[in-house]
Design a protein around this nucleic acid. Structure first.
Lengths: 192, 192, 192, 192
DNA sequence: CATGAATGAGAGTTCATTCAT
DNA sequence: GATGAATGAACTCTCATTCAT
């Protein structure tokens, strides 16, 4: 595949992303993507074999692109509380935004549940727990936080975020509700 | 619809339930249900017009049946902690069991998101929060629990349960993980 | 079939008639008739095997009932012109009225064209021509009419009526148009 | 749609025409056309969405093709009587020929009656009346015809043609009958 | 006689996938 | 590489017709 087709592939993935955002996973057909991309039916098949493959490549692309957003925003001198706040702010933003693949991703993993170590959702979830655990331990060390069970607290936060994400996609969640819960979590950690 | 057909309708709902448990919502066709029920194509249409209607009637049936399971198990003399434990045990059981409509329900509400007051998921979630809040306040009064923000704690528990449910359906969750988190939650409330 | 069922048969025919008036022939299903009659599916089959049979029995019933309307209204002493006027007035009324089986009948005979002598439409058409021819000859004898070709004139009138009937059912015809043409026809016959 | 598909579309319309000629409108299914064309189910849907659309496109095609047949056959020097004769001969030919869309068209307009100005049948009928009226007036001017009410006569002819068309399709009409009536009409106009 | 549940054939329609150009 | 016409499988839904009660 030459240089030109790399561009086209990228174009297809970007366009297909919008389709998945709008319609989830199961509702998206190859035809939908062909039409959104305004390319030929056969043309799409030159690059991808199925909607599954397209979604997975979108997710992979996404993972590569977003890996570093979080760390980029951490400045030297930030306290654990600062970083945790930043983390939760990021999550909140993602939670409330409209153009999200959340539904498509859940639908995909519902249909392709796997307890495998490599399951993307599992990896992301466990990475989140680890980051938070580290952060909480940092905060304990620095005297900012009080917490008897950092791992439990970290897991708690991740489960809550997961739960709020689902609520957001099934019956909506107000920014106020999110803020209240995040505040509840921070108050449980911070030594006043 | 006579007595006989009431039985048959029940039979179809029960059989269709298994199909939804196995395949979720979007993947289920009228044909699937026809075949599972071993009835004729037209026969199914005598009772139901769409998979949507079938799922909704299953959910309604389920709601009617399960309304009271929780309250039935509360004995006089139970402390707040006893009841909370019971509640969490129930939730844990639901969380870990295989034959669950969870995926079908989420898929349905992904496709039919509505921030309406009547959204079934919203009603169930909010009912859960209310119950827990009451319970926590009871526990505080009786000196069993310590909690500065009962509503925050109640929401926290519900979000966590929601998050664990999703994890269970997308990459699995071990009983151990569930126990750990539930323990973490109880420890946060109980005065040792 | 006992006395009771004769009544029921009549009831079905009367009710089905309305259905044919409303929907023509091809669009009418046994189900439509069952629903209109508010009887059971099987019940209808006790009396009739098909929509075709039902329509044909309605037409037969109609033929028996209406045979005499025309002759009943002829009074002794009426001139040929009087009778012709009466005839055309009858036809006009039928032409313009809404609850007509015309469409159903045409649809039926389109699908069951037969050049047979017994074809109902043919019989009615030819009877019409004969009546008109007689009438015109009477008028000539009595000095009311002038006509060199009574049969041609009679046929002309019947074709015109047929043509107007069709127009009425496909794009509508105004009473004015009907009157103009009937006047044109009368003027062609009457000696001023 | 490329050159090739234009051809195929034409092919489908031509083939479907035969089906409509044979079976009318209501009896024709997409499947019938698919089978007549020997193409795939999906293939037909690439070009047309419904039998209605197909019939309408056939009629449009027909209208475009036949618009000029009449005028093409008028030679300079023809008298009004010549042209009228030509017109009636054309109509007679159409009337008696077998492979006619007449039934399909009537069936369609029975089901889609509209008194609208744009109703195809209305337009054709009214155009016919206008042409005939002009023709008769020409004949009067040239001393060929005698007629006190050209519009009435023109309408009379069109109604008769319509009536004969219907008879032809419901119980048949012999060439002799057509000739007799057309002769009757001509005799009513021509000054001997 | 009468009911209405049940069946199954058949029409409509959509899409994943292929392939000649 | 790219196109888009073509295919055929799969689904949805409706009814004529039967039959046990």
């Amino acid at each position: 595949m030459g240089e030109k087709s790399v561009q086209k592939k990228k174009y297809i993935l970007d366009t297909a992303r919008k389709v998945f955002v709008e319609k989830g996973y199961k509702n998206v057909t190859m035809k939908d993507i062909v039409e959104a991309c305004e390319i030929s039916r056969g043309g799409l098949y030159l690059y991808f074999d199925s909607t599954e493959q397209i979604l997975l490549e979108i997710l992979q692309m996404e993972a590569e692109e977003t890996d570093d957003i979080f760390s980029e925003n951490i400045t030297e001198g930030d306290t654990a509380a600062d970083i945790l706040t930043l983390f939760l702010k990021e999550q909140k933003k993602e939670l409330l935004q409209k153009n999200t693949l959340t539904v498509a991703v859940y639908e995909y993993f519902f249909a392709n549940r796997s307890t495998d170590k490599n399951n993307m959702l599992r990896k992301q979830f466990e990475a989140g727990v680890r980051v938070l655990e580290k952060l909480i331990e940092m905060g304990i060390s620095s005297g900012e936080f009080y917490c008897e069970n950092p791992k439990g607290a970290a897991s708690n936060i991740m489960y809550v975020l997961e739960g709020m994400k689902i609520n957001a996609q099934t019956f909506g969640i107000s920014e106020k509700k999110v803020d209240e819960q995040l505040l509840y979590i921070m108050e449980g950690l911070i030594i006043d």
